[in-house]
Measured scan of single mutants.
Amino acid sequence: TFELKGKVGKVVKIAEDHYLVEVEGDKWIAYSDEKLSLGDRVMVVDVDGLKLKVKRIP
Score class of each variant (00 low, 15 high):
2 F>H: 15
2 F>Q: 15
2 F>A: 15
2 F>E: 15
2 F>Y: 04
3 E>Q: 03
3 E>F: 04
3 E>T: 01
4 L>N: 01
4 L>G: 02
5 K>H: 11
5 K>V: 15
6 G>K: 00
6 G>S: 01
6 G>V: 00
6 G>M: 01
6 G>W: 02
7 K>E: 04
7 K>H: 04
7 K>R: 04
7 K>G: 02
8 V>L: 06
8 V>H: 10
8 V>M: 07
9 G>W: 01
9 G>H: 00
9 G>V: 03
10 K>G: 07
10 K>M: 12
10 K>C: 12
11 V>G: 00
11 V>R: 00
11 V>T: 14
12 V>N: 11
12 V>Q: 10
13 K>D: 06
13 K>S: 09
14 I>W: 11
14 I>Y: 06
14 I>P: 12
14 I>L: 13
14 I>M: 13
15 A>V: 12
16 E>M: 10
16 E>T: 12
17 D>Q: 12
17 D>C: 11
18 H>E: 08
18 H>G: 06
19 Y>K: 04
19 Y>W: 11
20 L>A: 07
20 L>F: 12
20 L>M: 09
20 L>Y: 07
20 L>Q: 08
20 L>R: 05
21 V>T: 12
21 V>S: 03
22 E>H: 07
23 V>F: 02
23 V>Q: 01
23 V>I: 13
23 V>G: 01
24 E>A: 04
24 E>H: 02
25 G>D: 07
25 G>A: 11
25 G>P: 04
26 D>R: 04
26 D>K: 13
26 D>Y: 15
27 K>S: 09
27 K>N: 05
28 W>C: 02
28 W>F: 08
28 W>K: 02
28 W>R: 03
28 W>A: 02
29 I>V: 09
30 A>R: 00
30 A>Q: 00
31 Y>R: 10
31 Y>W: 10
32 S>D: 11
33 D>G: 11
33 D>F: 13
34 E>M: 08
34 E>R: 10
34 E>D: 07
35 K>F: 09
35 K>L: 07
35 K>R: 11
35 K>H: 05
36 L>W: 02
37 S>N: 11
37 S>L: 11
38 L>R: 05
38 L>A: 09
38 L>N: 08
39 G>V: 13
40 D>F: 14
40 D>N: 07
40 D>H: 05
40 D>C: 07
41 R>C: 10
41 R>T: 12
41 R>M: 15
41 R>Y: 13
42 V>F: 06
42 V>A: 13
43 M>Q: 07
43 M>W: 03
43 M>F: 04
43 M>S: 04
44 V>P: 01
44 V>D: 00
44 V>N: 01
44 V>T: 02
44 V>M: 02
44 V>R: 00
45 V>Q: 07
46 D>N: 03
47 V>C: 04
47 V>T: 03
47 V>Q: 07
47 V>Y: 05
48 D>V: 13
48 D>R: 07
48 D>I: 11
49 G>L: 09
49 G>W: 11
49 G>H: 09
49 G>N: 12
49 G>R: 05
49 G>S: 12
50 L>W: 15
50 L>E: 04
51 K>V: 10
52 L>R: 01
52 L>Y: 02
52 L>G: 01
52 L>K: 01
53 K>N: 11
53 K>C: 05
54 V>I: 09
54 V>W: 02
55 K>P: 00
55 K>Q: 14
55 K>N: 13
56 R>P: 05
56 R>K: 09
56 R>W: 08
57 I>D: 14
57 I>E: 14
57 I>K: 06
58 P>F: 12
